[in-house]
């Protein structure tokens, strides 16, 4: 149907793309630990070796877990299977709330205690006016 040159060009571009896609796939797979922005409490619990470098832990702030104690804030991050205690001293973002997403950056003291030096609030994909939220809660 097409000339020989056109066919060769098609083969060249398909091979080029395949090569690059495979390379990117391999790189991303190898670096998966660093590509993810944060780890969940379960992933930390399951990790075999001791994590000493700076990491981020993310999940939900557990209900009724936030305690304010002389300029420190203590709370629990949960992924509804496992949880981890977090200590943080500093300013928290406005959207930090119980039962909302959070990402804490810092170091792991042990498998149950995380010392954060930065807290980020994670926003979920739900957008709605306040009235709708209220009527949802009443249901």
């Amino acid at each position: 149907m097409y000339g020989k040159k056109v066919r060769l060009r098609i083969i060249f571009i398909i091979s080029l793309l395949t090569t690059i896609i495979l390379s990117i796939y391999i790189i991303l797979k190898l670096l998966e630990d660093d590509v993810v922005y944060f780890k969940s409490p379960t992933e930390i619990k399951l990790s075999q070796e001791k994590i000493t470098k700076k990491i981020r832990v993310g999940g939900m702030v557990k209900k009724n877990s936030v305690i304010l104690e002389n300029e420190k804030i203590l709370f629990i991050i949960t992924d509804f299977r496992n949880e981890i205690n977090v200590i943080f001293a500093g300013t928290i973002p406005n959207l930090f709330q119980e039962e909302k997403g959070v990402v804490a950056e810092g170091v792991l003291e042990d498998k149950n205690l995380f010392i954060a030096d930065k807290i980020l609030a994670k926003h979920d994909e739900n957008y709605m006016p306040p009235e709708v939220k209220e009527s949802l809660e009443q249901k």
């Binding site: 993810v36 922005y37 973002p93 406005n94 930065k118 980020l120 926003h123």
Partner: peptide
């Protein structure tokens, strides 16, 4: 900045 608390994150 007002929502997460940061201007930039090296997120995927």
């Amino acid at each position: 900045k007002p929502t997460w608390g940061t201007w930039w994150a090296w997120d995927p």
